[in-house]
Amino acid sequence: MLKNNQVEIDDARNAAIKVLLHNAHGPFHGLPRTAGWGYPEPYTRDLMFALLGIAVSGKQELMNSMRNVLLALAKNQTRHGHIPSLVHDARDLGASDTTPLFLLGIGIFRKITNEKKFLQQATEKALQWMEYQSPSDRFLVAQQPTSDWRDEQWVTGYGFFVNTLTYSYLRLLNQDERADQLKHDMGRFTITNGIMHKHVHEGLVVKYKPYYAFWSYKIFSSERFDLLGNSLAILSGLASPTRANEMVTWIEEECINMRKNEELASDLPPNFFPYINPLDPDWHERYEQYNKPGEYHNGGIWPFICGLYIAALIAAKRYRLAEKKLIALTQTIKLSKSKSLKFGFNEWIRAQDGMPMGQDWQTWSAALYLYAAKCVETKKALFFDDASINSGI
């Protein structure tokens, strides 16, 4: 399937490296830019995800820039171990995903460089910070609304994405005992009968569904689908091979239905569905301006997440589907708000009509394209394949 598209894929890879080299040095202490023009700041979460693609780029200059990012994050870490949202700004605090992403980045960087004790002190402080993020003093990590990458969407209590990040870095850093305990807690069902009995703990498994709850806390939960969290669940081995395969089939069938209903114009899945609509109980007034159905965090198509979904398809051994989605992603990254660009690597795409709505030359859009292409080429879920386990939830 890929042979007829290989030239186009190679062109896209070269364009992605061009974007990353352009963004490697920005105006803030020479740290990388988050986007070519719109975001000059070095955002922690974007750059930690981008490390996956930079690691397969073959460009030492880019790896050196990521070393500088990790060193700067360690320097700006709080005394309690928390990692800031902006790499250069020790005061920009409060995110729930930056510290687990830092630990994920450390795990990946150590695998690449074989520096087994790289930033050991900062790693230990970050691990301790994460242990303190469980209000039950167990293993599930809790968060405040809009504190993860979804800065315009409410995730309350035990968000699935942050907990899959936590599971992933625990595996990469060989913290297997705590990973097993977290897996056990995540494997409980969400509470659906409105009653929480003493010593009964909520979990993130949804009855009769192959995917995991968006979030759960006590008797409350959301069963909307989070593509990023569930892709990480497949990549990390949290989801068993059977669950992973069933989940992929479910995603593709739901996307077919959304296309029939004119809710989706792309061959790629939205980051979140079903969309939250104005009459839904989880709708917030602010969404009307910043998070409309099919847009931004409420169902927009994010190329960086689609790159991780393609890697998850490889982990699930759905090789032909992964090739098909890589071809679709190759077409999507051409979209741009600036018509002068051959490859836009735009931040996010509106689901209903496929219009690019974010910033062009987004670092993680370019990096995760490289990562997806390399996973398809090698048929390996790179950096996760030997960190995952054979039997998940």
Rank of each mutant, 00 (worst) to 15 (best):
residue 228 L to Q: 00
residue 3 K to Y: 13
residue 332 T to L: 15
residue 378 T to K: 15
residue 67 R to M: 00
residue 66 M to Q: 08
residue 309 Y to Q: 02
residue 42 P to F: 06
residue 85 S to P: 01
residue 142 A to R: 02
residue 389 I to S: 06
residue 280 D to N: 12
residue 389 I to R: 09
residue 229 G to D: 02
residue 191 I to W: 05
residue 267 D to E: 15
residue 32 P to S: 07
residue 230 N to I: 04
residue 232 L to V: 02
residue 85 S to E: 12
residue 241 P to D: 09
residue 158 Y to L: 04
residue 72 A to P: 05
residue 238 L to C: 07
residue 301 I to C: 05
residue 259 R to S: 11
residue 64 N to Y: 06
residue 213 A to E: 07
residue 222 S to T: 09
residue 212 Y to C: 11
residue 333 I to Y: 07
residue 59 K to W: 04
residue 210 P to Q: 03
residue 223 E to W: 13
residue 143 Q to H: 02
residue 223 E to K: 15
residue 92 D to V: 09
residue 265 A to Q: 09
residue 93 L to S: 05
residue 346 N to I: 07
residue 148 D to C: 00
residue 308 L to R: 02
residue 201 H to V: 11
residue 299 G to C: 11
residue 260 K to Y: 11
residue 87 V to Q: 01
residue 149 W to M: 12
residue 301 I to K: 05
residue 171 R to Q: 06
residue 182 L to I: 04
residue 295 E to L: 13
residue 104 L to C: 01
residue 193 N to A: 10
residue 354 G to I: 04
residue 162 V to E: 03
residue 290 Y to Q: 13
residue 152 E to T: 14
residue 386 D to Y: 13
residue 141 V to F: 12
residue 354 G to P: 07
residue 227 L to D: 05
residue 388 S to H: 15
residue 298 N to I: 04
residue 223 E to L: 15
residue 23 N to I: 03
residue 330 T to Q: 06
residue 376 V to S: 10
residue 207 K to L: 13
residue 376 V to F: 02
residue 66 M to N: 00
residue 240 S to K: 07
residue 328 A to G: 05
residue 227 L to C: 06
residue 252 E to G: 05
residue 284 H to D: 08
residue 346 N to Q: 03
residue 44 T to Y: 08
residue 107 G to P: 00
residue 296 Y to N: 12
residue 152 E to S: 14
residue 13 R to A: 06
residue 210 P to C: 08
residue 261 N to M: 15
residue 296 Y to I: 05
residue 291 N to R: 06
residue 285 E to Y: 14
residue 212 Y to Q: 11
residue 123 T to Y: 00
residue 144 Q to W: 09
residue 204 L to E: 01
residue 260 K to L: 14
residue 137 D to A: 14
residue 368 L to S: 05
residue 38 G to I: 10
residue 266 S to P: 03
residue 26 G to A: 07
residue 177 E to C: 11
residue 281 P to D: 12
residue 62 L to Q: 04
residue 145 P to C: 04
residue 302 W to I: 04
residue 93 L to G: 04
residue 103 L to C: 01
